[in-house]
């Protein structure tokens, strides 16, 4: 369970989030929908404790992480995996090395166990034959699957996706969304999915929060989005893609 309580965030004197509250349940897929630059990636960074809010609290499984030190945050972060918008793979490491990197860094596992887990992820992401390739040799969809594999390899309970379909062609997008849906079905993995593409929301999300001008203007089951009469939501329902 992830909770944001009255969270305010400023970069310098620019207010991005204005006292927002949000609850994300385990084993559910929650979307955060909003136009570019509204603060969606910022929310994910707050959840991981990569950023500190100016006001308000962030709780992970009931534990307040707001004033935790970096070293205290590491065990909390292990409960969650994150897939960055640009994947953030290490470009000098091969696909296998990218997948195993953080296991080697931060877990006390035997080399055999690590290789076994890497093999699992290669299989899961259908990347057989690309183990020794570099990220630059892969297509956008494949890189995204490596990034997802890198997050899953820790066996987290929750996974955070930053615009997982941005920049992908429609076929790859569908594949990635299918993957996210199947993870929840198969292993009960919860997810936070931030996106500016409303189709992503309708395809996989159980519930959705709409972020607009620093505030949450809607937070309910996905189907109820159609019942909202907020002008911004009306406009995105007719336009499908949000650009400001």
């Amino acid at each position: 369970m992830i909770e944001l309580q009255n969270v305010t965030l400023r970069y310098g004197d620019r207010q991005i989030l204005d006292g927002i509250s949000l609850a994300i349940e385990d084993s559910k897929i929650k979307a955060v929908l909003g136009p570019s630059g509204v603060g969606k990636s910022t929310i994910l960074k707050l959840i991981l404790g990569l950023l500190k809010p100016n006001n308000g609290r962030i709780l992970i499984d009931g534990v307040d992480i707001t004033s935790m030190k970096e070293s205290q945050l590491y065990p909390i972060r292990k409960k969650m995996g994150i897939v960055f918008q640009g994947n953030a793979l290490f470009d000098s490491l091969t696909i296998s090395e990218n997948l195993g990197f953080f296991l080697r860094e931060n877990e006390k596992l035997s080399e055999d166990e690590i290789e076994e887990r890497v093999r699992e992820q290669i299989e899961f992401a259908s990347l057989e034959g690309y183990e020794d390739s570099l990220p630059e040799d892969l297509s956008g969809g494949m890189k995204k699957r490596v990034a997802i594999g890198r997050a899953l390899i820790f066996r987290p309970g929750m996974i955070l996706f930053d615009e997982p379909t941005a920049g992908l062609d429609p076929v790859s997008s569908k594949k990635i969304l299918g993957l996210i849906g199947s993870l929840r079905k198969k292993s009960g993995l919860g997810a936070v999915l931030v996106t500016h593409i409303i189709d992503d929301v309708f395809q996989v999300a159980d519930s959705v929060a709409v972020l607009y001008k620093g505030k949450i203007i809607f937070d309910d089951d996905t189907e109820k989005l159609h019942d909202s009469n907020h002008p911004f939501i009306q406009s995105i329902l007719s336009d499908k893609i949000l650009e400001q």
Binding site: K45, L48, L50, E70, Y74, R77, K78, G81, I82, F84, Q85, G86, A88, L89, F90, F102, E105, N106, R150, F154
Partner: peptide, 12 residues
């Protein structure tokens, strides 16, 4: 490219 954030996010 968020690789530095990735390091922190995954515990390094």
């Amino acid at each position: 490219s968020e690789q530095i954030d990735a390091l922190r996010a995954f515990g390094t």
